[in-house]
Computed example of a mutant assay.
Amino acid sequence: MTTEAIRKTAKQTVSSSIGILNWRNLKKVAAWCFLGVLAVTQVYPLLWLLLYSLKTTSEIMEGKFFSLPKSFQWSNYVEAFTSGEYSKYILNSIIVTGISLVLTIFFGAMVSYAITRFQWRYGNAVLLIFMIGIMIPIQSTLLPLMVIFKNMDILDTHLSIIIPYVAFALPMAVFILSGFLRGVPHEIEESAMIDGASIYRTFVSIILPITVPPIMTVTILTFISVWNEYIIAATFISSESLKTLPFGLNSFVGQYTANYGAIGAFLVLGALPVIIVYFILSEKITKGMVAGAVKG
């Protein structure tokens, strides 16, 4: 090969390498731009709400969509704690959300284990029934549930909202957990049974620890939906002492006036537990979302 041919080949190789690098850099820049826009759209509402909570009612009524407060009204947060009875409402939300979470994870894990690990004729039919539950809107169940709870004499109790919360959270929990358990090798259970472990011991000591990542995903999804739910709580709860956090916002709205600054502070305090829980469980949530796609 002549020297000219070698130079030409080398030039073509360098040019193709530069082209590949430029294409890779372009894809990286495009990806970062997309993620940046996505991050701004997610963070902006929280920032806007924080500024909203530090304004006076007159500043809010001026209608400026995004502006700094003239003076930071930290008194809005004091009023949210005192006049808004934040401590009472958040205690009710913690009780309702905590019980709903435990029941959803407990029943969801058992149902998923039975559907995916036991060889029985109606396993897929049961799974299909739960999947149909995802498509049922909450609003269509309010009237029949009202009649049922009234006949059971549990209307206006925490139980009257915990039951619907668990019922509507179970389909998604079963969907996520069953998808994960289908990828778990059966040899794990067979080894435990050879060692003398019963089905219940295998479920508690082996299956539950393995399913921690998808359980964390179910936890955060259920936590967010129950913590922020308003329609069911407003329908079945009338006693002031039993109201949850979203329903407690009504305490700031009078017949002729509304303290919008205190409402904003109340919303910030209500969103804070969700943000904290998400950051604590974020790594396990990410693993849980992809766990079902990884086959053992």
Rank of each mutant, 00 (worst) to 15 (best):
Gly84Phe: 12
Thr57Met: 11
Gly63Ser: 13
Leu49Ile: 10
Lys150His: 10
Met131Trp: 00
Met61Trp: 00
Ile105Glu: 02
Ile99Leu: 11
Glu85Trp: 03
Thr141Ser: 04
Met152Gln: 13
Ile94Ser: 07
Trp48Thr: 09
Thr56Leu: 00
Phe130His: 05
Ser160Pro: 03
Ser140Gly: 02
Glu62Cys: 02
Met146His: 07
Leu68Ile: 03
Leu50Gln: 02
Tyr113Thr: 01
Leu128Ile: 07
Leu51Pro: 13
Pro45Phe: 13
Phe34Lys: 15
Gly123Arg: 05
Asn76Lys: 04
Tyr165Trp: 15
Phe65Tyr: 14
Met61Val: 07
Phe81Arg: 01
Leu103Gln: 07
Tyr113Phe: 14
Phe65Asn: 13
Met135Arg: 04
Phe149Leu: 07
Ser67Ala: 15
Tyr44Lys: 08
Tyr165Thr: 14
Asn92Ile: 09
Ser53Glu: 03
Leu46His: 08
Leu142Thr: 06
Val166Ile: 13
Gln73Val: 14
Tyr89Thr: 08
Ile136Glu: 09
Leu91Ile: 07
Tyr122Arg: 09
Asn76Arg: 03
Phe72Asp: 10
Tyr165Cys: 15
Leu143Ser: 06
Gln119Ser: 05
Asn124Thr: 01
Leu68Met: 08
Leu46Lys: 01
Ile94Phe: 11
Gly63His: 11
Leu51Phe: 15
Val147Pro: 01
Gln42Lys: 02
Asp156Ala: 10
Lys88Tyr: 01
Ile134Tyr: 04
Tyr44Cys: 14
Pro144Ser: 04
Met146Val: 05
Pro137Gly: 14
Ser75Asp: 09
Gln139Ser: 02
Tyr52His: 06
Phe65Pro: 12
Pro69Gln: 07
Leu54Phe: 05
Gln139Cys: 02
Ala125Leu: 14
Ile115Asp: 03
Trp48Asn: 05
Gln42Trp: 01
Thr56His: 08
Gly123Thr: 03
Val78Lys: 00
Val43Asn: 04
Leu91Arg: 01
Ser100His: 11
Ile161Phe: 03
Leu142Tyr: 02
Ser58Phe: 14
Tyr77Val: 07
Pro164Thr: 08
Ser87Ala: 13
Val43Phe: 10
Tyr113His: 12
Gln73His: 13
Leu128Cys: 08
Leu128Ala: 11
Thr104Pro: 10
Asn151Pro: 03
Leu145Ser: 06
Ser93Leu: 06
Asp156Asn: 15
Leu159Trp: 11
Leu46Tyr: 08
Leu101Lys: 07
Tyr77Gly: 03
Val43Tyr: 10
Ser71Ile: 01
Phe72His: 15
Ser67Glu: 15
Met61Ile: 06
Phe106Gly: 01
Ile94Tyr: 09
